[in-house]
Design a protein around this nucleic acid. Structure first.
Lengths: 193, 193
DNA sequence: TAGATTTCCTAGACCCTCTAGGCAAACCTA
DNA sequence: TAGGTTTGCCTAGAGGGTCTAGGAAATCTA
């Protein structure tokens, strides 16, 4: 009986393919084993289980996602950087919904702490906001606004929640424009009368 | 053998409780049957299956969610209405994460079309934007912005994605303020040079 | 080449969805 | 109130999922 040549890396790559075509919720140890022509139990010598596999997938996809965004924003700043960031973001989410969903998986703190991709994503977002010169806590609030809007849009688009006639990419571009306007005119802290 | 008194309504109510305490991903026909002290197969006389149960749950929770938002915005408009909408939105998402997640489930078109709660949620959002007097397609873009930001924030908060020291509710309030500013100064359609 | 290690296997426990078919309780109706 | 009908819950079982324990073969290493 020849060996199938399984490794954690190959298993994660197979998981990426599976998630890309079938969706994150269809990811299973069984399905991967079938793909390798191997019994389910064989995979457990390489990964600890489904939770471990999902964590590895999340770390892998976050790194890929952060890379694409990093390339897009390289050498740009201000409105240009924001547009490039947003373009790369939606492009990834639309063309690889399963991978994008993986980047948003909830992870155990120790896994998250050891994921360069997740750290890079946060870092890219903070750098993006530098030209807007927001003092804390406004900077953090603005980061959270951007993350929320981008992720929310991607999530809603992925579940088919936008039904109006308006083309979705046009809305996206307009929203990015609006966010730029907002960041350049960030409202002052409200005072209590 | 006395009957357990199952009905679709009671099953959906049990599903609401389960989802509230265990999370949407733990919802299963088996767990509900255990709760009723009944065999799995018994539930299939009342619901078609798990997909049907999830759809009913989504419709139920969307109606509840829309009600709360409707009560919150009643008699208000402009900034007040936006703040009330946002407050009710986050309150529901934070205090009932499982129910909120259910309102965001992807549904077959015919189910969605027959869900008053989902329709009311969209309607509330459009009404909210009336005072800002945005012509189409700006109105649709603004609706999509609000939905994206609110849902994205709720989703990220639910997965524990906000790690900065800044208190999450403070960010939420600030973001709502910022959105009000943005809606009152919606940028003009960019012209191509 | 012998021993140690790794890889994949079989077997099986346990949980899940869902269907088919049966029996008895609850409800009608005469 | 006795008959039949409908309904509610049952048993049995197929099929798919995760995961563990322990065994045998392929591969590495001394």
């Amino acid at each position: 009986m020849p060996r199938a040549g399984l490794t954690p890396q190959r298993i994660v790559e197979a998981a990426v393919d599976l998630v890309d075509t079938a969706g994150l919720d269809r990811l299973s140890v069984s399905a991967l084993a079938r793909g390798f022509g191997v019994k389910d139990a064989s995979l457990y010598s390489h990964i600890r289980g489904l939770a471990d596999l999902r964590a590895r997938l999340a770390v892998h996809c976050a790194a890929e996602f952060a890379d694409r965004i990093g390339s897009a924003v390289a050498g740009r700043s201000g409105r240009d950087a924001l547009a490039a960031f947003a373009g790369a973001y939606r492009d990834y989410a639309v063309s690889h919904p399963g991978r994008y969903a993986a980047t948003q998986l909830e992870l155990p703190p120790e896994v998250l702490a050891g994921s360069p991709g997740h750290a890079a994503l946060v870092e890219h977002t903070y750098l993006l906001l530098r030209p807007y010169a927001l003092a804390e806590p406004d900077g953090t609030d603005a980061v959270r606004l951007l993350r929320s809007t981008f992720h929310g849009f991607a999530a809603l688009e992925a579940t088919g929640a936008f039904h109006a006639a308006r083309e979705v990419p046009a809305s996206w571009n307009r929203i990015v424009e609006a966010l730029h306007t907002l960041l350049t005119n960030w409202p002052p802290t409200p005072t209590h009368p």
